[in-house]
Design a protein around this nucleic acid. Structure first.
Lengths: 346, 346
DNA sequence: CTGAAAGCGCTAACAA
DNA sequence: TTGTTAGCGCTTTCAG
């Protein structure tokens, strides 16, 4: 057993020099062994390894990278809404899985829709010389990243298009996904379909609304402005919105909710009003435990794992020299029919 | 607009020397300004700031820390089950919130119950010279961290007690929580209460089982070994286990499920058997959307945010010089009555 | 208040 | 196959 209290003065960490002295070789030889370069005799390798083992030597990557030609830190910065949010967490996980294969570690940071925090986090990443950046942004403009792009740092935007600069972007097919969900309700016979969306400022929200409107138009259904409620930030607001909708003279027979938390708010409200078996509901973005609710919730699911994987792949491609112009990667959605979206109008 | 394709040769990043030259001062003066040291004239500060601004200078923390006395990297390593798992994600978020206040960035890594990955991740953290480590471990022994502890690196274990060394640990009160959940079922009149647990190797699983058994014993109920099913790793296994239980001649009237996914498996099975309104269920660890299920799920909730916050606080205390012996921090649970746990025996 | 020189731990370039 | 020297970008030390 080793404990903190037993230890005397904290020993200094062993350096490459220490290992070299103990092994009776020069530092560069140790460096060669540690980095598995060629042209070292088996015997020398063994001696160095033994010395390193004995001293519990851990190479210092920061010091190494300081002189190394490419100055890579084998580090990535990931900025998401919140690491505690399931969508972000899935993106994070996918990025991590891609990164670990290249021995790259990832810094993750939550920004909580706070523009101040976006800048602060990005600067913190930059000071730490991350090799690349994967960002969900909130700021009005990302032009402040221009210099990094020019210096050749790979930057991939995720889930939102950047403003003020051109860079690789990975996006859910919000437009088609929302249209698809809406079409699904139209196909079930609904004509009065409400739209619940979040802040009009958010790119994804705008796209989803557009998809909803497009689908209606294509079917020759005139959108009713009273059925379109936006700027719903959280569950409680969505609940209120649904209550209002149901109180209309000619209430909607179906609801398309364009975001996760809004869908949950809608479920709560529909249930409280005893309308959950009567009013159809399709949500954009999957909801946890959706299949265990009654009715089970039909959703247009995003694929956060794919988003994270594509973003990471792109970063590494660019790090490996890919230099084609910035591109948008569109990730398709998947309609998951579970019940709530298959309710027909009375 | 700035784009990748417009840029010519990637320019080299500006260094402190560049700023110094542009401002017409020595490097040390720039260093003083950047680090906000005293004894620099207001005029000089202004000149340096202007030059830094103009060159878009970003200090390189790695280079700085190389020579700095305390050798801090302002970096933390966090190892959790999976960043995509809600419990871990909440811990992560709490750690991040504490870290950001001190301008500390956190590396998060998922270990997926893979001992190999545990070692690899910890080594990756160590090579990057993190200032501290917050770990959910899986390996049989963590003795390999002994040298780090001796060197004075703060290490806090979370959710599991380490083996082979003594270090600060933050734990849910598994024993009392499980006992509490079990007592809740006993108080409702149940005498045949099943226990569903995961791998017997896991510390928390052992504690929860002990809590269950203690509660039964204290009430004078002899535990029936046929009602105790362990080593349930995932939902599907839990479902099978519940099916077996319900097929007994004298089936349980209540179930205490000792883990998240197991609880979900139990819900699915009970519902499939039409038993969810008849057999009581209390789960350890909260379940997403629990209050929207029917019946809503009664749980003994953990407090992952508190766990993360305490772990981070401890790391920083130690970094600030605290040297008291390693301690266990026990985080209480909370019984949330929602319905499934209040069903009485027939 | 300011700057020159040394050196942090490592790798690049070159020499042996 | 191995070692030596310089230098990465910064902070420390110490002298102006």
């Amino acid at each position: 057993m080793t404990s903190l209290s037993e230890s005397g003065m904290p020993r200094k960490r062993p350096t490459m020099k220490n290992v070299a002295d103990l092994a009776g070789v020069g530092v560069k030889t140790v460096s060669r062994v540690i980095n598995q370069e060629r042209y070292v005799s088996a015997d020398t390798i063994a001696r160095v390894m033994r010395a390193a083992e004995q001293l519990q030597y851990q190479p210092d990557v920061q010091a190494g990278n300081l002189r190394r030609a490419d100055r890579r830190t084998d580090t990535l910065g990931l900025l998401v809404g919140s690491v505690a949010n399931p969508f972000s967490a899935a993106v994070h996980r996918a990025v991590e899985d891609a990164a670990i294969q290249r021995h790259v570690a990832v810094f993750a940071s939550s920004l909580d829709d706070d523009p101040e925090r976006e800048r602060a986090s990005v600067e913190a990443f930059l000071r730490r010389r991350v090799d690349g950046l994967i960002l969900t942004t909130i700021q009005r403009s990302q032009a402040y990243l221009g210099p990094q792009l020019e210096q050749g740092m790979p930057v991939v935007f995720v889930d939102r298009k950047p403003n003020g600069l051109i860079a690789d972007t990975v996006l859910t097919d919000n437009l088609e996904g929302a249209a698809r969900g809406t079409r699904h309700l139209l196909a079930a016979g609904h004509r009065r379909i409400a739209f619940l969306g979040d802040s009009e400022e958010i790119y994804t929200a705008k796209e989803r609304k557009r998809g909803y409107l497009d689908a209606l138009r294509l079917e020759g259904v005139a959108p009713d402005p009273r059925l379109v409620i936006e700027n719903l930030g959280e569950e409680a607001q969505a609940e209120l919105a649904v209550n209002e909708l149901l109180a209309l003279d000619d209430p909607p027979t179906a609801i398309f909710s364009a975001q996760n938390l809004i869908t949950i708010g809608a479920i709560i409200a529909l249930r409280a009003q005893g309308a959950s078996e009567r009013v159809a509901l399709v949500g954009f973005d999957d909801v946890p435990m959706a299949s265990l609710l009654s009715p089970a919730v039909t959703v247009v699911a995003q694929d956060p794992s794919a988003i994270g994987a594509i973003a990471a792949r792109r970063i590494f491609e660019r790090l490996d020299g890919e230099s084609e112009p910035a591109r948008d990667f569109i990730v398709p959605t998947r309609l998951i029919k579970r019940g709530s979206g298959e309710i027909r109008p009375a």
